[in-house]
């Protein structure tokens, strides 16, 4: 620990670059997580309701979304996806550098992943509850908004937690191709300049961030779980 403290105070790279890197990582992760939830939740709901025997069964929609959009995106390794998306990113945000640009590929990789977790969480809601909702005269929208999603909430929050943790992992990779953040810090100093202390500190910070996300996710899950 003495050694680490020495490092912290003496290494100019850490003094100057650590906080901005943490900030960039948080921006990247926060932004892409937000977009992932905003798009992935409805996508997961649509996957669920259009499945066979679902509230709004639709073979066509389900096939396109599930087998084509979600499965194909999910089967492309992130390292390839983030490079392949550079032109799209440039078109969308005007640059392929910086945390904002990195958020684009992070979100595109995470949306199908999260949508599957949403679908799974919704499937755990017993069909009897939806029958009850219908028998009482709920519209489909009411069944989804007032029954399905609230009943699935513990699973949904657990899914958000898993997704954010996964995004943190990917964000280190995104850092290498211009995203910045802790990933690039570790790469530039730890790998290219053999400063292993930078590497160690970076890993510790990432572990702390992951723990914080997991811990607060678990806390929220418990809060909403009345089962």
């Amino acid at each position: 620990m003495i050694l680490l403290e020495d490092t912290w105070f003496n290494n100019p790279a850490l003094q100057k670059a650590l906080l901005p890197a943490v900030y960039e990582t948080l921006i990247m992760v926060g932004l892409s997580s937000l977009v992932t939830v905003i798009i992935g939740l409805p996508l997961g709901v649509v996957l669920y309701v259009t499945q066979k025997g679902g509230l709004g069964e639709s073979r066509g929609v389900n096939f396109v979304l599930s087998s084509i959009v979600v499965n194909i995106t999910r089967s492309i390794p992130y390292a390839i996806l983030m490079v392949a998306l550079i032109p799209f990113t440039r078109w969308l945000v005007g640059t392929s550098l910086g945390p904002l640009a990195a958020s684009v590929s992070l979100a595109i990789a995470a949306i199908p992943f999260f949508a599957r977790l949403v679908e799974t969480a919704l499937r755990e809601v017993s069909p009897g509850k939806l029958d009850a909702a219908h028998a009482m005269g709920s519209t489909r929208m009411q069944s989804v908004a007032k029954v399905l999603i609230p009943e699935a909430m513990p699973g949904l929050i657990a899914g958000v937690t898993t997704t954010v943790v996964t995004i943190i992992g990917y964000s280190a990779m995104a850092g290498l191709v211009g995203g910045g953040g802790l990933g690039r810090l570790a790469y530039n100093y730890g790998y290219q300049r053999y400063q292993s202390d930078v590497m160690v500190i970076t890993v510790i910070v990432i572990v702390i961030i992951v723990q914080a996300v997991q811990w607060s996710g678990d806390w929220f899950t418990r809060r909403v779980d009345h089962r």
Partner: peptide, 21 residues
């Protein structure tokens, strides 16, 4: 149909209450 359904109150074997409420 939704209005008509409210004319029938249904009680299930396993109550089917909403756990989140």
């Amino acid at each position: 149909l939704r209005t008509a359904r409210r004319r029938i109150g249904l009680v299930f074997q396993q109550a089917n209450l909403f756990d989140s409420r």
